[in-house]
């Protein structure tokens, strides 16, 4: 919308925030050990960024690193210590 003529009268939000790469905020990255996972989905339940995906009730959780901010709640709350937060190396 580079022309003011194309802008609506008042700001109306219709586009998804999903295109915003909040993963850039991350310092620590979650590393997941699938072996230890018992599919309790506590990590999914507590994620403030909706960045942990569970496809169905049989599958392993998956991390959406485009959005994960690396807060570490998943690692802290995992009852099986299946998630570890490590310092992310940036190229």
């Amino acid at each position: 919308m580079s022309k003011h003529q194309d802008i609506p009268l008042t700001p109306i939000n219709t586009e998804s925030s999903e295109k915003v790469r909040t993963g850039d905020w991350r310092t620590y990255i979650p590393v997941f050990d699938a072996e230890k996972c018992i599919k309790c989905y506590i990590c999914w339940k507590y994620c403030p960024d909706a960045a942990i995906k569970v496809k169905d009730e049989e599958s392993l959780p998956e991390w959406d690193l485009f959005h994960c901010k690396g807060c570490g709640i998943c690692a802290e709350e995992c009852p099986k210590d299946a998630i570890e937060m490590i310092l992310e190396e940036v190229e």
């Binding site: 802008i7 609506p8 008042t10 109306i12 939000n13």
Partner: peptide, 27 residues
């Protein structure tokens, strides 16, 4: 044309950054 409608969810009145705020006042 636009209103709060669960069948067509939109946000109204959000934060607008300086490059666009002026356009809305112009309108």
């Amino acid at each position: 044309e636009h209103f709060l409608d669960p069948e067509n969810p939109k946000g109204f009145g959000s934060l607008v950054m300086p490059p666009q705020y002026m356009e809305f006042r112009y309108k």
